[in-house]
Design a protein around this nucleic acid. Structure first.
Lengths: 138, 138
DNA sequence: GTTTATGCAAATTCTTTGCAATACT
DNA sequence: AGTATTGCAAAGAATTTGCATAAAC
């Protein structure tokens, strides 16, 4: 919780109970979360609409980044190296087809890719799908 | 339209007006489409629900594949090399932050990636974002 | 005390399901 | 004729907006 408060004040955001709850949920889970996920986790802790607004403000400040998904789910994950002005989203996302969780594999370097001329790339996101380490053990 | 009929019969799907319209929309647009996109394009041509069901059956048969998106939009695109049993989704998707269109860059090879042990990868999708060739000209 | 964030109500959009009517082979 | 597909109605999620209240600084 202390970490959550630190992140909030670091980004000039007022420290509220709702924001701390949402941020703590991301800190304690190492996978991407959607608004519906958070709504279930936080239950009566804070209002449905508040969660949407908090997610927006966290995106704005660069605390979170959007995670690509192929099923139309809007997911978010903690940005370690992001700032408000530039998102360093150059990392891999692994989505498990068994448990449904998407995790960020920050430690794996993004491969080099040669695009046709005319394309200006601002963000790279890689979405791998299969069975995650946890699920393939069980 | 002839091409649409060929694809349908090739996949043992009955040739109906609705399916031809949906498939033609994909053939004529070289970018990923969502159900709401199609609903606007086809207007009174066919029912909202029918589009959902057609998209499902096309996914089933491997005519379409799901395209990753980071804004919670469920998008689909034509599969060139896909079959009903195996999706060859190993290609790049480029989403333009200006016009919002996502196109498949089939010709660019997917880079090799080394994952930690325990991860079994079944599908690879790369989502690049920036400004597309068309938008950077204008 | 001022500003910003929250909660509630309500509206809008996206998606799914059931069933009777219709179109395809 | 027989089966698969469609349209309509209706329900259920997900998301957005407006405004008064409450909390943070």
């Amino acid at each position: 919780m202390a970490k959550a408060e630190a992140i909030l004040s670091q980004h000039q955001l007022r420290i509220t109970q709702s924001r701390k709850s949402v941020l703590t949920a991301f800190i304690e889970n190492n996978h991407a979360l959607s608004q519906p996920d958070l709504e279930k986790m936080l239950e009566s802790d804070c209002d449905r609409v508040t969660i949407y607004r908090i997610l927006d403000s966290f995106l704005d400040k660069g605390i979170l980044h959007r995670v690509p998904d192929n099923e139309g789910k809007q997911k978010y994950a903690l940005c370690d190296a992001c700032t408000a002005h530039h998102h360093h989203d150059e990392h891999l996302h692994f989505k498990c087809n068994n448990c449904g969780k998407t995790e960020c594999l920050d430690e794996i370097p993004m491969p080099e890719i040669q695009l046709p001329s005319g394309y200006q790339v601002e963000e790279w996101n890689m979405l791998l799908q299969g069975v995650c380490a946890e699920c393939s053990e069980a």
